[in-house]
């Protein structure tokens, strides 16, 4: 009980500091609107059609990009992880790719594909590819040697080896990569929308900001955060369902 009181108190203090700072600091609403205005804006957005369209577009494009990245990242990652020679040969490329701020590719794809959903999806896929790839490599590399020897002794055909052995044994790691990628997909999506004229949450936010509707812009930023929390929770559920065998294995 006291815990709930304490937690509510921190939120109250946060809100109070905000309210008092704006009120007594004479902060222009352009810079930081009053917290009550932001609260009203979050409610107001729920009545706008453009809000739902923006959220749906962002989620759809993020999901498509994520799906493409998952297929490519898992298949490439498991293959690389299972073959040490391939792992060595691709290491420099992968290190380069993962340390690249992928959003910097935006202008190139803007030139080639134009300001389109395609361009956004491509960038999301590139951004999500690397976390999934790295975790898949890691998962496939971690396969225990008994399993490896068994696979070799039975001369399993590669297709069976991939789908029945490598993929399941790497799946807990792959899901970790997927979890990172889900958050990345929303981030890249919002970043692309902010910097280029394609529809989505980020676009609505940037446009609200251009019209000096800062409260609406902050409300959109909050919804972007809530979206991130929701997809993360969804992945949590998924993870629990898919790798239940792995978790129960650990407990035993």
């Amino acid at each position: 009980m006291t815990l709930i009181v304490r937690r509510l108190a921190t939120f109250a203090i946060f809100g109070l500091v905000w309210a008092l700072a704006v009120h007594f600091g004479n902060v222009s609403p352009n810079i930081l609107p009053q917290i009550t205005d932001v609260a009203l804006a979050t409610v107001e957005l729920l009545g706008r059609d453009t809000f739902y369209i923006a959220v749906a577009t962002t989620v759809r494009d993020a999901a498509i990009g994520l799906a493409i990245a998952s297929v490519l990242g898992v298949s490439a990652g498991v293959a690389i992880g299972a073959m040490p020679a391939l792992e060595r040969s691709t290491r420099l490329l992968i290190d380069f790719g993962r340390s690249f701020p992928q959003i910097a590719l935006l202008p190139i794809f803007l030139l080639i594909l134009g300001a389109s959903s395609q361009m956004k999806v491509t960038l999301i896929a590139i951004g999500c590819f690397f976390p999934i790839l790295l975790q898949s490599i890691y998962g496939a590399r971690k396969m225990n040697s008994t399993l490896q020897d068994t696979v070799r002794a039975f001369r399993l055909p590669w297709r069976m080896r991939f789908f029945r052995v490598l993929l399941p044994s790497a799946s807990p790691f792959i899901l970790t990569g997927f979890r990172i990628a889900v958050v990345v997909s929303i981030l890249v999506s919002v970043a692309v929308e902010i910097t280029s004229p394609v529809t989505g949450i980020g676009r609505e936010l940037a446009e609200a900001r251009d019209f000096y509707e800062t409260d609406i812009a902050i409300a959109y930023a909050i919804y972007a955060g809530i979206l991130g929390v929701l997809v993360n929770a969804a992945v949590d559920q998924l993870e629990r369902r898919i790798v239940r065998w792995h978790l129960s294995d650990k407990e035993a």
Binding site: L187, G202, L205, A221, V229
Partner: peptide, 11 residues
């Protein structure tokens, strides 16, 4: 921390 940093940029 759930509020993405990139969303804060235009604001």
């Amino acid at each position: 921390r759930a509020i993405p940093g990139v969303a804060i940029i235009p604001i």
